[in-house]
Design a protein around this nucleic acid. Structure first.
Lengths: 94, 94
DNA sequence: AAGAAATGCAGACTATAGTCTGTGGATATT
DNA sequence: AATATCCACAGACTATAGTCTGCATTTCTT
């Protein structure tokens, strides 16, 4: 399990939320465990490669459809993905 | 459990996806079970009342943040919410 | 060390999420 | 029946998700 560092990054004055960061970290973690590149994940999920990068860096957050696409590509259920995010989020809120 | 009818509704030529519809139906179901109005749900989740309506009719889909807000307001975990959506989605795909 | 692969980044763009206002129809309450 | 509550709907708007291109930097492989 990742050591969570609550990093706040800046994007043109827009402050990323903790949730977006956590989602990104979890996404990157799972992708790495599956040993696939962002490019492969993008291909499998039918999303743009650079968007995967944006997600992992917490600069974007996914919609429902994107969550379903990503989890399918990672071969986990969307609830598993969200559960991991939720757990980290609850932990980080303490 | 709702009897799922795969209804495709139109919005200015934009076709709603099955997933958006299913999310909307599940959201409405849970809200009704909790016996609260759209207005109350909107208030508890800090979202716009008309947007709750749009979601329930499948005319919009939520982002991650919105999923977390809604589930908190409904007093369920986000993974529980997504799980229900996933189950219905898998069922409807057959 | 060189080359290939992977990823970050900026900029511009399209598509759509989310808000707000006003109005009217449907349903519930009195 | 009258009134209150609930919700759909249209229209306009702001904010942001997601795409695409080009290029730089980093990481990995040989």
């Amino acid at each position: 399990m990742l050591l969570l560092i609550a990093v706040t990054s800046k994007n043109e004055g827009k402050q990323c939320t903790m949730l977006e960061n956590i989602f990104g970290l979890i996404l990157k973690e799972i992708r790495s465990e599956k040993n696939i590149s962002q490019e492969k994940l993008a291909e499998f999920s039918n999303l743009d490669r650079t968007y995967i990068s944006l997600l992992e860096r917490g600069l974007r957050q996914p919609t429902l459809t994107t969550i379903f696409k990503l989890s399918a590509a990672l071969q986990i259920t969307p609830q598993e993905l969200i559960h991991k995010v939720y757990e980290s989020y609850q932990h980080a809120k303490k």
